[in-house]
Design a binder for these strands. Structure first.
Length: 365
DNA sequence: TCTGGGGTCCTAGGACCC
DNA sequence: TCTGGGGTCCTAGGACCC
């Protein structure tokens, strides 16, 4: 065996991040079942963003209607979502990760969201480095984390789940089939309930079966890109390149589920103006013109549609963005009650119009 | 149980053009 | 006669993730 450091992907995931941030600033909540969601009112239309481990024991889970979670956890402390607080805590953690380096060990940080990042590292002892990462985060923020170690991004990401909470797990080509082979395909990152059901329709239930599946069959079912991607996923194959170049958002959106359905055209128009104005401000902050506007509608009880229009030319004018959204809203069914409205604006990419300079679209790992 | 908000990428199908 | 094939652009919808 060589003594030289080798390349690893570490996936760092903060444990019960949102609940943990709330407990940090309200120490009296430690040990209590904490549920964060919506405006903190279980009577409203909202879902659980994060439940503390204590609340999960009673059956609360992310994505569950707040009302149900509150019923299941009678003693729960229910708090509103405070996005700016989580953004701040997240940036603090990511800065700590970027500053992390030891002798001969230098990391690149690719942020995946508030509570996750990939680290590209070179080390002889990835477990020791993972423990160091956890210690650095803990001393910087008092937050606990789990770390997955992999030879690809997919394996590192999936490994983290086996480390939770607070642990470390290594998943590589050597133990992929042993660890994952008998698990259902839905255990894979990127396979959800719909795709796993379609795979089952092809006789593919487990990760091993997906790994052994005929690529052409997958391509016929899912199309050229997704078919090939699922074939790779079954084997744990993916990129191992951690990329820290700043992400350029393709667009911004704002949507609202109304506490009571909208019924009149005047209500709808006011709501669309409000959302379009907010989205416009988001694009202004980005400093890039808008080229497409999409209106999303969810009719009661729960039927969702989108209407989109490419603008005649990219614009930086508020009035044009709002007018486009209003024009789309003219196509809504006036006879149906509306539960949700959303407006999305897509922005011109900075280098667009200069094809030679175009950066590749962020690939599927 | 009655289902948030903010994102990304892929696919299908129709229109249009040569 | 009534029929091609391919390419691009656009919209709608689907699926997934945190």
């Amino acid at each position: 065996m060589s003594d030289a450091p080798t390349s690893w992907v570490l996936h760092v995931d903060l444990d019960e991040f949102i609940a943990a941030v709330e407990v940090l600033r309200r120490p009296e909540l430690r040990g209590r079942p904490v549920i964060v969601g919506g405006r903190g009112d279980p009577a409203e239309r909202a879902v659980v963003a994060t439940a503390s481990y204590e609340a999960r024991e009673f059956g609360a889970a992310s994505g569950m209607p707040l009302r149900i979670a509150a019923r299941r956890v009678p003693d729960a402390v229910i708090l509103p979502v405070d996005a700016p607080a989580y953004t701040e805590a997240s940036e603090y953690v990511m800065q700590a990760l970027r500053g992390l380096s030891r002798e001969g060990e230098r990391g690149i940080v690719e942020v995946l969201g508030w509570d996750e990042a990939f680290l590209g590292v070179q080390t002889k002892d990835p477990e020791a480095l993972a423990r160091h990462v956890q210690a650095v985060i803990l001393s910087a923020t008092a937050l606990h984390s789990s770390v997955g170690i992999g030879d690809t991004k997919v394996r590192a990401k999936i490994a983290t789940g086996f480390g939770k909470p607070g642990g470390i797990f290594r998943l590589t080509r050597d133990n992929w089939i042993e660890v994952m082979g008998e698990r259902p395909t839905v255990a894979l990152w990127g396979v959800g309930s719909k795709i796993s059901r379609r795979l089952a329709g092809l006789g593919i239930e487990t990760v091993s079966q997906l790994a052994a599946a005929d690529r052409d069959v997958l391509v016929a079912e899912f199309g050229p890109r997704m078919g090939r991607w699922y074939a790779e996923l079954g084997r744990g194959h993916s990129s191992a390149i951690v990329d820290d170049t700043p992400w350029i958002p393709r667009g911004h959106s704002r949507e609202t589920t109304y506490q009571s359905n909208l019924t009149t055209p005047a209500e709808v128009e006011a709501a669309v103006r409000e959302l379009a104005g907010q989205v416009f401000e988001d694009t202004v902050a980005e400093g890039r013109p808008v080229f497409r506007v999409t209106l999303k509608v969810r009719y009661a009880p729960f039927f969702t549609q989108t209407k989109a229009r490419k603008l005649p030319a990219p614009t930086r004018e508020r009035a044009e963005v709002v007018a486009a959204a209003i024009a789309l809203s003219d196509r809504l069914d006036p006879g149906r009650e509306i539960r949700l409205l959303g407006v999305r604006a897509e922005m011109v990419m900075p280098e667009e119009g200069d094809p030679a300079e175009r950066t590749p679209i962020r690939g599927r790992l």
